[in-house]
Amino acid sequence: MTSWPATLDALLRERGPALFGYAYVLTGSADAAEDLVQDALVRTFRSGRGSRDINSAHAYVKRAITSAFIDGGRRASARPKSADADPSSFDRGTGDVAQQVGDAADLQRALLTLPPRERACVVLRYLEDMPVASIAAELGLAVGTVKRYTADGVARLRTLDLDVDLSEPHTIPVTEGRQR
């Protein structure tokens, strides 16, 4: 068993971009993603769950990102407007080409209009291709609740007339590249 600082170090070096990317999909901003990843790392490593190996640490941190995101959303919902609720404020990065960037950016703006739990359910369902039962276990919610959040979220996205295929994700072939 390696020490936790060594695991943390290796985790950030090897999986930092992937974890950051996941947090970025949820929050829509690099600053919020950084706060979220940092919070999730503290939650994971203080409980000793991160010290076994980099793969289990990765899984724990990812789960902690999701729950910290939902917790933060609940806290922020008491405020009139949260920082990530402004669709024009997110940092889109650099160097990408026209059309696809546009569609992804549209989807991101649309995602930011969803409340945190709906957003988390939609992202886990489509990006992670997680079955509803796994999402329920991950978020500590009932299966029926997850179904409702997902359906409500998708319904809302559909009303926004995006250029995106929102059919059920199990039709997509699962390839090696899916698991980040």
């Binding site: 992937a18 990317g21 996941y22 970025y24 999909v25 696809q100 960037v101 569609d103 992804a104 989807l107 991101q108 939609v122 992202v123 489509y126 990006l127 291709d129 250029d163 995106v164 295929d165 929102l166 059919s167 994700p169 997509i172 980040r180």
Partner: peptide, 11 residues
Amino acid sequence: NTAYELMDQLQ
């Protein structure tokens, strides 16, 4: 594009 492809791109 599928939702997965676009979210993957965002990621």
